[in-house]
């Protein structure tokens, strides 16, 4: 087993560029062992770069193929896949971009990466049928104070100082606008949600965003609304509940 372990250890180190020493006892057979190992290195690095490109197409469009490749290699150096299934791979790309000195001229880039990751999470989230109004109507008014909601597993909330939704939209392949975006127009608060198979993204107001964030964190409806109303006394939670029910954002309720 020692030889098997040593071979795999040295092989993996070579592939992930930690070392240029090749594993022992590989047959050259007309080609340098380094060249044979380089094929495996290239397969891994090119394959995983492509996986990141598929996850982050807008980041790729914004920075170009060559710079994206540099970002991807830096990511693979620090955060290689931890499972064979790549659905969790690439989660920290926004963190890497924020750390990457050469990317700092695009201040909104980490937020774009974060948004693309949230799209990916929402896309693969569990399917759950929405809460029916008739079920909610059965709640005893005496229990209203303890009422809390479960949001659909695909719901994701994102806030940015930049208009990342417009940047994202203007970098989609079916976009037909002029692509001019005023970065000084201010930030946005976004709700991502996947009712069936497609993820939808909508801007929401600050009060709405704060209330949804509180509900998502498991805070009771009454306490969430109280907190929102300290800043927005006119906040109408009825609108949020009605929209939440009709769109399927709310999937269940419970008491706390």
């Amino acid at each position: 087993m020692h030889r098997l372990r040593d071979t795999q250890r040295d092989f993996a180190r070579f592939v992930f560029r930690e070392s240029d020493l090749v594993p022992d006892d590989i047959v050259a057979n007309g080609l340098a062992v380094e060249q044979r190992m380089a094929i495996y290195r290239n397969n891994t690095l090119a394959g995983l770069t492509e996986a990141l490109r598929e996850l982050y197409p807008v980041v790729n469009r914004l920075v170009g193929d060559d710079f994206f490749k540099r970002l991807a290699l830096a990511y693979l150096d620090s955060r290689p896949p931890k499972s064979a299934c790549l659905l969790q791979f690439g989660a920290e790309f926004a963190v890497l971009i924020a750390e990457f000195a050469d990317a700092r001229s695009l201040a909104y880039l980490p937020d774009i990466a974060r948004l693309e990751w949230l799209f990916n999470e929402a896309y693969h989230a569990e399917n759950i049928s929405p809460l029916a109004l008739s079920d909610l109507a059965r709640v005893d008014p005496a229990d209203y104070a303890r009422l809390a909601f479960k949001l659909h597993p695909s719901v994701r909330l994102a806030a940015s100082l930049y208009p990342i939704d417009r940047i994202w939209l203007s970098n989609q392949s079916d976009y037909t606008g002029d692509g001019l975006i005023d970065l000084n127009q201010g930030g946005c608060r976004l709700l991502l949600f996947r009712p069936e198979t497609d993820v939808i993204m909508n801007r929401v107001g600050e009060a709405h965003f704060q209330c949804l964030s509180a509900l998502a964190a498991g805070i009771s409806l009454v306490r969430a609304v109280e907190a929102v109303m300290t800043n927005w006394p006119d906040f109408a939670v009825g609108d949020l509940l009605r929209d939440g029910l009709s769109q399927g954002l709310l999937t269940d309720f419970y008491f706390i």
Binding site: R3, L4, R9, A12, F16, N43, T44, G47, K82
Partner: peptide, 25 residues
């Protein structure tokens, strides 16, 4: 094939040495 070492995944299919040890494993 094998594709992981120490919890790090190659996303590729690397060759196994064809030995008795590997066969049993």
């Amino acid at each position: 094939a094998w594709s992981s070492f120490a919890g790090r995944y190659l996303n590729d299919l690397a060759p196994v040495p064809y030995t008795d040890t590997a066969l049993a494993h």
